[in-house]
Design a protein around this nucleic acid. Structure first.
Length: 482
DNA sequence: TGGGGTTAT
DNA sequence: ATAACCC
């Protein structure tokens, strides 16, 4: 490949090192190595295997709870354990336990189809996410005790960067303990472990921490889940699903090409969604190998340089995106979907309900939202998923009342939402909505946003009586930093 | 397809 | 404000 001449030189110079450390090359094995080396070439050309220089290899764990909503329901009501259980939202079974899966129930299955497949199926309503959300944050907090760098993905998945923790454990290890180091859980591809390879050693320690995490989740919260340990988020996530309920798998670097080649379609790659998969299909790209070998220049022209470079790296199993600590949520929202909503009175009633729940949540959080948004979905045969929204700042006199009596703020906030609504929908014309959602975002800690600015000293309500009163109240039960 | 979330443009 | 992504 003329364009890659320089990279190829690097490959050749590093090949002896690579082969010497290759666990598959034992004396009693010889003929199949050419096949293995082709995988190695791909990886080296794309700078994945960098023994010297560059950032240190990371150890990442992806933790994925088994059928999370169903588990929470079985904890709430232990009589449900052992029975086929589905969690219902509107007319969908959004998830179900493994008893139900054995009997043919799938995620996001129509309730009618599910009942037909499995007449004994027990259904519980899961439209109120409160208990799921609370349990979800308990899991994240538990993982944060191991290492503070925890990134949430949805309610039931977390990434943790274990690199530092692994380094600390290795420093405290005695040399005789090192030779007795073992993996915890499965090794992907049943790969041979080389205890002379520092990357293997670090991932093994990662697998032991993953087991401790899963044990803590079970002992303290009663939850089971899977874990995947690898050198980046993409690979950790892909490998966590290999052995499925309540098991874990570690990926050693030499098997990363096998793992990504095991995907049947680019759509299965996290980061390549519905739209990008469609555009790739139009270019004739359907397999991971298609994407690996497709012209970078053409891909950049078709998808833009940012998306093109990112997904082509993903196709080689490369993902340098950091584990970004999620911290507290950036937004609170509540939504409701329905067959039809076509009058202003109905809209107002739905909005009041959504807002009441939101104000309770925001009150518990302690921070204050400075922006409010209304989202709608209009009825239409095509483009069912498209939504429209309008947002505006929340007036400061409302923000100040937020923590206390929600009754005072609900009326003015509904008024604001109705103005946003009439800005989107011409109420003099017939309309047909299928979803309403209210979102509170732009969250700030207490009302100190202007502290230290000119505005702070020029706003009487902030710099004098109101502020000190608010402070003393807030100090009692808030979790805010000082 | 539900009821949520995030970041990038 | 929308569009993409994730669960």
């Amino acid at each position: 490949n003329p364009g890659k001449k320089k990279s190829f030189c690097i490959l050749l110079s590093q090949l002896p090192f690579f082969l010497k450390n290759c666990p598959l090359l034992r004396d009693d094995q010889q003929p199949e190595y050419i096949y293995f080396c082709f995988f190695a070439c791909d990886a080296l050309l794309h700078d994945q295997v960098v023994p010297e220089g560059g950032p240190p290899a990371r150890v990442i764990v992806h933790v994925d709870l088994d059928c999370f909503y169903a588990q929470v329901e079985m904890i709430s009501n232990p009589e449900l354990k052992g029975k086929p259980l589905g969690v219902q939202q509107k007319y969908l079974v959004v998830t179900c336990n493994y008893e139900a899966r054995k009997l043919g129930v799938k995620k996001l299955m129509n309730v009618r189809d599910a009942k037909e497949k499995c007449p004994q199926l027990v259904l519980v309503n899961g439209e109120d996410l409160t208990r799921y959300r609370e349990m979800s944050y308990k899991v994240t907090e538990l993982l944060e005790e191991f290492s503070p760098v925890v990134e949430r993905l949805g309610f039931d998945e977390n990434f943790v960067d274990l690199t530092e923790m692994v380094e600390k454990r290795l420093q405290q290890l005695q040399s005789d303990e090192l030779s007795a180091l073992t993996v915890s859980g499965h090794v992907y591809n049943n790969q041979y472990i080389n205890l002379h390879d520092i990357l293997h050693i670090r991932l093994l320690v990662g697998s032991q921490i993953a087991t401790e995490m899963r044990e803590a989740m079970y002992n303290q919260l009663g939850l089971t889940g899977c874990a995947g340990v690898a050198s980046n988020k993409l690979l950790a996530k892909l490998v966590s699903g290999v052995f499925k309920p309540n098991q874990q798998t570690v990926l050693l670097p030499e098997s990363s090409q096998v793992l990504i080649q095991s995907l049947n379609h680019v759509k299965e790659m996290p980061g390549i969604g519905y739209k990008t998969a469609k555009r790739l299909e139009a270019l004739g790209i359907s397999s991971v190998h298609d994407l690996q070998t497709f012209s970078s220049k053409i891909l950049e022209k078709e998808l833009g340089i940012s998306v093109a470079q990112r997904i082509q790296k993903l196709s080689f199993g490369e993902d340098n995106s950091p584990v970004t600590p999620s911290g507290p949520p950036q937004s609170f929202s509540e939504e409701d979907s329905f067959k039809k909503c076509s009058s202003e009175v109905e809209v107002k009633n739905k909005i009041e309900e959504l807002l009441a729940s939101l104000l309770n949540r925001v009150c518990q959080d302690g921070r204050k939202p400075h922006t409010i948004r209304l989202i709608i979905r209009r009825y239409s045969s095509e483009n069912h998923c498209s939504r429209e929204s309008r947002q505006c700042p929340i007036p400061s006199h409302i923000i100040q009342k937020l923590g206390t009596g929600n009754c005072d703020v609900i009326t003015p906030m509904v008024d604001i939402l109705m103005k946003l609504f009439r800005n989107m929908v011409n109420v003099k014309m017939p309309f047909h909505l299928t979803l309403l959602s209210v979102c509170l975002c732009n969250l700030k800690a207490l009302n100190t946003s202007k502290k230290g600015t000119i505005d702070y000293y020029l706003t009487p309500s902030l710099s004098t009586t109101s502020r000190s009163g608010k402070r003393s109240f807030k100090m009692k039960d808030s979790h805010m930093e000082d």
